[in-house]
């Protein structure tokens, strides 16, 4: 399985950002099984990175690898939507119908 590369853009210590970080760590452990690399970027400290990636909403999660590039916004509280949005193969219990998104 190819390595998953994720970047999570947050804004400082806002509740949404804190929740997103916590949710992401949970999803990573529970669903992605350690085969991932997660970078957390605080756009208040690194606004130029947000500019380069054209981030509007925070939190924003970007999956760079494996392709295709996908973006998910929000505090990531809806695990199903996060996995759907990232277009990642999920646990066997889930349906295989993950094409597209909504």
């Amino acid at each position: 399985m190819a390595k998953i590369k994720l970047t999570l853009y947050v804004t400082g210590q806002t509740p949404n950002s804190q929740r997103a970080i916590a949710n992401m760590q949970r999803i990573s452990e529970e669903e992605l099984g350690g085969e991932y690399e997660l970078v957390i970027v605080d756009v208040l400290e690194r606004p130029q990175l947000a500019e380069d990636e054209r981030i509007l909403a925070t939190p924003t999660l970007i999956k760079e690898l494996p392709p295709p590039l996908r973006r998910v916004i929000g505090d990531l509280s809806d695990t199903e939507k996060v996995l759907l949005g990232l277009d990642l193969q999920v646990a066997p219990a889930q349906s295989n119908y993950v094409e597209g998104g909504d």
């Binding site: 853009y9 804004t11 806002t14 949404n16 950002s17 929740r19 997103a20 949710n23 756009v43 208040l44 606004p47 130029q48 947000a50 500019e51 054209r54 981030i55 509007l56 909403a57 925070t58 939190p59 924003t60 590039l69 996908r70 973006r71 998910v72 916004i73 929000g74 505090d75 990531l76 509280s77 809806d78 695990t79 939507k81 996060v82 759907l84 949005g85 998104g101 909504d102």
Partner: peptide, 27 residues
């Protein structure tokens, strides 16, 4: 640049704000 980019869909999974946009404008 906050213009939409074709072919890139964004999925919302939970609450969000436009903090990044504000931060980019301030920057």
């Amino acid at each position: 640049d906050a213009s939409p980019h074709p072919g890139e869909e964004t999925i919302a999974a939970g609450a969000y704000d436009l903090g990044a946009l504000l931060s980019r404008i301030e920057h």
